[in-house]
Nucleic acid binder design. Sequence first.
DNA 1: CCACGGATTGGCT
DNA 2: GCCAATCCGTGGA
Length: 204
Amino acid sequence: MIDIKSLSKLNKKYYSKDVNTVAKKLLGKLLVHNIGRIKLAGMIVEVEAYNGKVDQAAHTYIGKTKRNKIMFNEGGYLYVYFTYGVHFCCNIVTGKKDEGTAVLIRGIEPILGIEKMKANRFSSNKIESNKIFNLTNGPGKICQAFQINKSHYGLDLTKDKIYLLEFKKIKEEEIICTTRIGIKKSIDLPWRYYIKDNPFVSKK
DNA sequence: CCACGGATTGGCT
DNA sequence: GCCAATCCGTGGA
């Protein structure tokens, strides 16, 4: 069992940088969710940057609304949204106040609480596809495994029970930069980053 | 292996 | 009323 007590938590200043800078640096960090005495933790292996100023695919491109308003805060908050009538997706707000930028978490390698994640993902009669790599290789899957939903919208990552820790140093040459997935606008922006050869990346 | 479509809510026009 | 920053089961090659 890995002891994460000695790892340091990312602070406000860390999240306040430019969204693409932060996105890249989030690779190798540990996402932690404390649920009672259970601790869920996993290493971020795939992310995408969204910037409403220049990016039509960003939810903030249309300006401030009830749904996206947390993205206009300064960095360090959790933006959770509901999509396709089925799934939640989890984002890290970045930058300065009123920028409207965030990083979508798309792939995670489970580290702690794996049995709990399995229970969250594969509860019922379903699935022969309950392989370990299918736990958290996608944004909707991550929220299901980590029990993240609308109630966590706007949570402060420096003060609350969901937060990020320093974990593994990722070398520049291990990072793949490419175009984003599942969008119809601004499809050519190379704002997706993932760790080369990691099995928890959602898609090559 | 790959392509396709259904699920199902809520945000915005 | 349209459609989405997705996932999964099905059906055909």
